[in-house]
Design a protein around this nucleic acid. Structure first.
Ligand code: SF4
Ligand code: SF4
Lengths: 130, 130
DNA sequence: CATATTAAAGACCTTTTTAATCCTATATAC
DNA sequence: GTATATAGGATTAAAAAGGTCTTTAATATG
């Protein structure tokens, strides 16, 4: 029930990019150095952020990462779900996960509510505010 | 960012006990059978629930588990934290976890808020309601 | 007391996830 | 074409999750 390192690093990465001149491409080396992220691990994370449409990656000299969307349009939830997948608090919340009790289970409703609340909270914070 | 099986089983166990005659001692075998919990694994979980003061365990013939507190007094959060430990969403929320950014980190505040919200939600549901 | 019943306790195990790192390939600026 | 940078796949080590096995101990009942 906890954020992974990858999730934490992803947030730091976007946070760093948000604070620079947003139009610039920032070197991976700089992001990793300033935000205490292992460089190679950052590569993996950046690739997921790119796949999710949050950043653009440029290879080669002068390459690096650049935000595609503006900080106001990126929420914490976006970043977290980009690297951790859909946020659920209990497996039975996933559509394909079958629990025989699901239909009538009162606990299930609680998890659904809690999940909604958490996602709303995280979706309510943009990187412009951070 | 998800409940473990142990947590899920713990909830099912308390749920089952809450639905029986609360004063009765229920056999581990029955709980496991009715709630689809691996028997030996339930032992481990029950021991944690006992340590947390939620159930009383009796060994020997006619032994089993019995609720100590009434269902109205047991919340989902109680049960979850009994087996998973204190609920936190990011490591930096733990007192002893050091992050050099913690002091000024805006993200930290969000996690603190989200965690509080989630705990409140789970603490707001008792087994009498379930 | 003897015996049957029932759970504890600790060791052990397997699988999955996490958190990286290594290495080769590839893209770009100059 | 060379130096600079990241991609992408394979690999790895450590930890956590999710159990199981075996031995021990407690209790009821005849
Ligand atoms: S018992 Fe309820 S909460 Fe637990 S997995 Fe099934 S549907 Fe979900
Ligand atoms: S950067 Fe902020 S949110 Fe991330 S671990 Fe440090 S204090 Fe917590």
């Amino acid at each position: 029930m906890k954020l992974t390192r990858a999730g934490e690093y992803a947030i730091r990465c976007i946070l760093y990019l948000s604070r620079q001149n947003v139009a610039d491409t920032i070197r991976r080396h700089d992001v990793a150095g300033h935000m205490d992220i292992p460089m190679q691990f950052l590569s993996k994370i950046a690739q997921q952020l790119a796949k999710a449409g949050l950043i653009q990656i440029t290879q080669g000299a002068k390459g690096g990462y650049r935000l595609i969307r503006s900080p106001e349009e990126i929420t914490l939830l976006d970043v977290i779900e980009a690297v951790e997948g859909e946020l659920v608090l209990n497996d039975c919340l996933l559509e394909h996960e079958r629990c025989s009790r699901k239909g009538t289970c009162a606990v299930h409703q609680v998890w659904a509510k809690a999940r909604g609340q958490l996602r709303d909270t995280l979706a309510g914070v943009t990187f412009a505010e951070l």
